[in-house]
Design a binder for these strands. Structure first.
Length: 596
RNA sequence: GGCCCAGUAGUUCAGAUGGUUAGAACGCCGGCCUGUCACGCCGGAGGUCGAGGGUUCAAGUCCCUUCUGGGUCGCCA
């Protein structure tokens, strides 16, 4: 009962100023501040407290000569107590100014204090430079989020979503919500399922994206749609992947590829310039999928440094070096990268070989270029002419290290692409101030899935083939290019989209290529196929991973730093302890039995 | 599902070769202190060494299993 008497009310104690905004202009004003006790310095006869709210920190002073009563209460304050104080703002004497904080020229002498709530000792300090295991931060997320750095991240996120909305609203887009309880689709990621109590034995799925609904909205005549919405994929997590994440989802009618890309360049420019304060030049460079893979070994190249992949298959196809010759005979390729003067030891080169094996490569050949000679374990198998041609082809200078991978095309590109990235990082070739936006275009429409023994859609089954490639759908389906595009920033895929198929016939054709019978296709996507029959505009769009964009804006490598309540690698929320078991009655109502 | 790293006080860590009562810093509690701002000084409390099993006279330390957190490959149309 006594404790209840300690709780003090806000009545008549309305905040007049924010802690971080007080300055010399407020001197001699009587102000009321509210916030958390950030730090307390008790000097015996005088107590200083750093009071913290969202705006920042302000020093308040408890002095017996100002108020005996306030001083006594100030003595009882501890970290993270929530208080309100009324007092007069005073200019600090020159020698007491704290240049480290914006409010360091003033302080508030407390005349009256109210303790709104006490606080247990927090498990870690509320400050930016903490060295605490992330699981503890996640368990006590409410405290972690008080840290100015985390507040800044969440504020950046809020401003970024506003910037997207402002831009899209100004371009006449409509924000339209789509269902969270929707139909499970077989293609793509694993669905999160939600049982339906009123339809026993049946399940909704949480959306992996609003893809089908936004296409239907185009059929419904809204022409320009966007939504900033949560999506769910039950797949394994990564440092930039959460099971629930936010998409900036856009769809437009009566457009082709160039229209979509141009609008998106303007939008990305708007958002990054407004939030990050950098200059973004448009249009962004474009590179085809094929060129990206051949030159960088990946469909999301980091173009902040060179070290492009170079094909030397033709030079070594008849070489005495069996690894090269046999690989080419079996239809493989030999490619290399030129690492400019890395100064690597033999030991370090051996380390690269281990790296290659980690990525699934069979091995790594290397040539160290010297003044008038080369050093290499394979040089004795190569003719003088072959070596000369390789050096010329790869623009090799003394001290350069040439690295080669011989494998099938896909593996060689993948391994060298990863090696290139690792070396770029290791040799500090990456200028972290650069923002290299890049469109990847002309993705293949289909790829063959060895496991499923059928073609699967590279983007998704609703992506339109390029007009000039449609004729190859029956003859060379894997050569058909799609009207699909990704936006890549510094080696990270920010988003992707496509122009969609808008005819029932072509869509049915697509499903048949994917190995669906007509019945299966209609069973799963009948509502879309049927909708197509009632007048469908040509349409297309794009979707961005908002979390990843905010990671760039906030300059963090960790997606959990830009989400208020993220999940761990095991998809667990350490604060709420979700997921959890449910009571038997809930399961009974849903006719669900746990068979663990 | 595979591989790698970590788990000892509230927090971050130390703890060769197995061996007396598991230490430090910060934080916390108490005392002193009227100009601090990472306040200072003095004193104190605080441990399921992630969990289970095994080897041993003896395990924080060695072995096995397992859990948790992180990274990564597979996966993510």
């Amino acid at each position: 009962m006594g404790e209840y008497n300690m709780i003090e009310s806000m009545k008549g104690f309305k905040r007049t100023h924010k802690c971080g905004k007080l300055g010399l202009e407020n001197v001699d004003e009587t102000v009321i501040l509210t916030g958390w006790v950030h730090r307390r310095r008790d000097l015996g006869g005088v107590i200083f407290i750093d009071l913290r709210d969202r705006s920042g920190i302000c020093q308040i002073v408890f002095d017996k000569n100002v108020s005996e009563n306030a001083f006594e209460k100030g003595d009882r304050l501890r970290s993270e107590y929530v208080i309100g104080v009324k007092g007069k703002v005073k200019k600090r004497p020159e020698e007491n100014v704290n240049p480290k904080i914006p409010t360091g020229k003033i302080e508030v002498f407390v005349e009256e204090i109210r303790i709104f709530s006490k606080a247990e000792t927090p498990p870690f300090l509320v400050e930016n430079k903490i060295n605490v295991d992330e699981s503890i931060r996640l368990k006590y997320r409410y405290i972690d989020l008080r840290r100015p750095l985390m507040q800044r991240n969440i504020i950046i996120r809020s401003k970024a979503t506003q910037a997207f909305r402002n831009f899209l609203n100004s371009r006449d887009f409509l924000e339209i919500e789509t269902p969270m309880l929707t139909k499970s689709t077989p293609e793509g990621a694993r669905d999160y399922l939600v049982p339906s109590r009123v339809n026993p034995g049946k399940f909704y799925a949480l959306p992996q994206s609003p893809q089908l609904f936004k296409q239907i909205l185009m059929i419904s005549g809204f022409e320009k749609y966007y939504q900033i919405t949560r999506c769910f994929r039950d797949e394994d997590l990564r440092s930039n992947r959460q099971p629930e994440f936010t998409q900036v989802d856009i769809e437009m009618s009566f457009v082709d590829v160039d229209d979509v890309l141009q609008l998106n360049e303007e939008m990305i420019k708007h958002v990054f310039e407004e939030i990050k304060g950098i200059r973004v030049d448009i249009p962004f460079p474009r590179i085809t999928y094929q060129d990206a893979v051949e030159q960088y070994g990946t469909d999301k190249p980091d173009t902040r440094f060179g070290m492009k992949l170079i094909d030397i298959t033709q030079i070594v196809k008849n070489s005495e070096f069996k690894v090269f010759r046999n690989t080419v005979e079996k239809g493989g390729i030999v490619k290399g990268i030129n690492v400019k003067s890395p100064g690597f030891s033999r030991r370090e080169i051996d380390g690269l070989i281990d790296l290659v094996k980690k990525y699934g490569g069979k091995g790594l050949a290397w040539i160290m270029v010297e003044q008038n000679d080369v050093k290499s374990p394979i040089s004795k198998f190569l003719s003088q002419q072959e070596i000369a041609q390789i050096l010329q082809r790869m623009d090799a200078q003394p001290e350069d290290l040439l690295l080669f991978v011989a494998d099938d095309r896909e593996m060689a590109n993948m391994v060298l692409g990863n090696l290139r990235l690792e070396l770029g990082r290791r040799l500090n070739l990456i200028d972290s101030r650069k923002f290299n936006f890049l469109w990847i275009t002309d993705f293949p429409l289909l790829e063959y899935d060895e496991e499923e023994k059928r073609y699967v859609a590279v983007h998704h089954p609703f992506t339109s083939p390029k007009d000039e490639d449609i004729q190859m759908l029956d003859t060379y389906p894997e050569q058909v290019r799609a009207k699909a595009y990704d936006l890549v920033l510094n080696g990270v895929e920010l988003g992707g989209g496509s122009i969609r198929i808008h005819s029932t016939e072509l869509q049915e054709k697509m499903f048949s290529l994917l190995g669906f019978s007509k019945e299966e296709a209609w069973n799963r996507f009948g509502f879309l196929l049927k909708a197509f029959k009632y007048g469908t505009p040509p349409h297309g769009g794009i979707a961005y991973g908002l979390d990843r964009i905010v990671m760039f804006l906030a300059e963090t490598e960790n997606i959990r730093d830009v989400i208020a309540f993220p999940k761990t690698q095991n998809a667990v929320d350490l604060m709420t302890e979700a997921p959890s078991e449910v009571v038997p009655k809930q399961l009974e109502e849903l006719h669900i039995e746990i068979t663990l």
